[in-house]
Nucleic acid binder design. Structure first.
Lengths: 341, 341
DNA sequence: GTGTCACGCCAAAGCGCTTTGGATGCGCAT
DNA sequence: ATGCGCATCCAAAGCGCTTTGGCGTGACAC
């Protein structure tokens, strides 16, 4: 059933039917009723492609997922972010388009999305400290929101980020307050902007306490369980092992816990651990009582909010570029305790 | 730059330009060269919406992600599956559309996708044993491929699945061969078809060995680390604790390992563990030497293949409904060993 | 009665592409 | 010269929708 048929069926013009369904005032209330009732009955939905061709709006937003060949890992965060964003899109009638793109292809793909007109806007995932995508998208004049930031980008752009610096500073301060002095940082890849910022927060808190970070206790890698395990194992075997760990993801934390328990160390007593917790639906940090002390920020919420920002921007392209900094509160769990003497 | 402009620029008709770019024979080789060169230079891409309006093909496939409110977990498998599917789509020029849909809304959403014509086909995720979506989609006559199966569905449909039954039977047999008699099964939610089949495989192997499953050693729940931990902890505290665990996901396995190590038990010596391993990119089962003995099947490959099946089917709708059963080989890791006496 | 206006509706153009059904011109055989 | 066929190209219709501009009608004021 398409508009033409529906109109014919009702003995009305396409114009009137279209207007009736889209809430224009030039149509009497009685006909509107009649039309929407018939539409309902025949399960009529305007064809999306025809509609967007006519209106010039795709009613779709794109998510470009980088799948670099060097670290061909799908960001575990991704599912939850998407799920949050999807909720928002649904409310506003937007579709969500996904493209898996290899790093080198990024410019080409963005240009294509623009030229083909498949999307009205984009979400940029996993920005690096210096990320060429942002400049490119600005040039292309297509609305976009970055999940995270790119510190080296000079031009303004829309972003939503967690305050990684302050979160990790606060976490570090807690450990310092508990008397810890040898604190290890197991960070994500430091080409990623968020990792850079977390390290900055960590170092700031240390230096404010008059301490310097110790290179042997700093690591940066893809955030896997094995990474957490082997790093912690090695560090705990050092002459002066760290008494506390600050790590960038719950998955790393699982590895650290394993290494600790393997040595018979009890978390929160013999060794302390704070992790960042993205509040992933399939990797909960315990139930009511969190297992790990953590800086927590729901990535699902981030998805919801980013999507909203993007939709707002698509609606009012001229308006100022929105930015949003979410705080990640420190959640006290059972993995932290005073430094053993 | 659109077709009209490009044609004007070249002093040709839209027809000729369109034909030149789409490889039709009615155009001389010289003009074809000229056209494609100009298209390249002006970075021309046909507008997707206009194209699909004209051709009637959306060049997009939809993935409908169920987000039931009862278990509002985003399937951790999802990212990798999508990433595999995305590769295939890219090769064939298809876009990938995602919809997060609450369970109750499923029928409505499918009807809408059909009526709005946004997609040419669908992938159905996470089928339950009795899943109404399949019948609905068959009725709607829209091509689709199910990732998994729905045992109760009588009508034929296209699917790709892992041979869960045989995988779990073989895993059980290995444990039996190693002398284990008290084997616990920590399964996923048994409304899910895959979980049902795994249990069937487990029970088949037991009964072939003349054993009956012991209810106290069977559990079924959302597959989280905590679930694995607490279940294992409780079971290991029993009078006659299990000597081996068979679990449905690596995440559960992590929990079991924690419970075991907490009790000072060494995996592969004091207690054995086999897990199903979806080979997720962010949750690797060790490196070259797998940590856990596992039935392994790459969910990313499953995505790749499902997508291919769907595209084939969209291309030849009349052809027989394809089905594909992937075997999940048993990978020997360090988590299994002879039953301690 | 006539003019004015708001109201409710419609015909037709247009979005950017594909595709049908010719048109045109040229070489070649007749 | 004439006719035919082939190779190239084009005009125009159509995909399903929105939107512009306009058209008839009845109410109301004068």
């Amino acid at each position: 059933m398409n508009l033409k048929e529906l109109a014919a069926h009702l003995g009305l013009s396409q114009t009137t039917v279209s207007r009736a369904l889209n809430g224009y005032p030039e149509v009497s209330e009685t006909t509107r009723q009649r039309v929407s009732h018939a539409a309902e009955q025949h399960n009529y939905r305007p064809n999306t492609r025809a509609k967007s061709l006519a209106t010039g709006r795709a009613m779709a937003v794109g998510h470009v997922i980088p799948t670099s060949t060097r670290h061909e890992m799908v960001n575990p965060i991704f599912g939850d972010f998407i799920s949050g964003a999807g909720e928002t899109y649904k409310q506003h009638g937007y579709d969500m388009l996904l493209s898996m793109v290899e790093d080198g292809d990024q410019p080409r793909v963005y240009r294509e999305l623009k030229a083909k007109g498949t999307v009205d806007g984009l979400i940029v995932h996993a920005p690096e400290t210096s990320d060429p995508r942002i400049g490119l998208l600005s040039d292309l004049e297509i609305p976009f929101v970055v999940h995270g930031r790119a510190s080296d980008e000079a031009r303004p752009y829309a972003w939503l980020d967690v305050n990684n610096t302050s979160a990790f500073a606060r976490a570090t301060e807690l450990l310092l307050d508990l008397g810890h002095r040898r604190i290890a940082l197991l960070n994500g890849l430091e080409s990623m902007d968020f990792a850079r910022r977390r390290r900055a927060g960590f170092e700031r808190a240390l230096s404010e306490a008059g301490l310097a970070p110790e290179p042997a206790l700093l690591r940066s890698a893809e955030m896997t369980e094995t990474y957490g395990y082997s790093s912690a194992k090695e560090m705990l075997a050092m002459d002066h092992p760290p008494t506390a760990f600050l790590v960038s993801s719950l998955i790393i934390a699982l590895g650290v816990r394993r290494a600790a328990e393997e040595q018979g160390l009890v978390l929160g007593r013999d060794v302390s651990l704070i992790t960042h917790d993205d509040d992933l639906s399939y990797l909960r940090n315990g139930g009511d009582v969190p297992v790990f002390t953590a800086t927590r920020s729901s990535v699902r919420d981030a998805g919801r909010l980013s999507a909203q920002m993007l939709i707002d921007q698509i609606g009012a392209p001229a308006s100022a570029l929105p930015t949003r900094l979410l705080e990640a509160p420190l959640i006290h769990g059972r993995s932290t305790g005073p430094c053993p003497t």
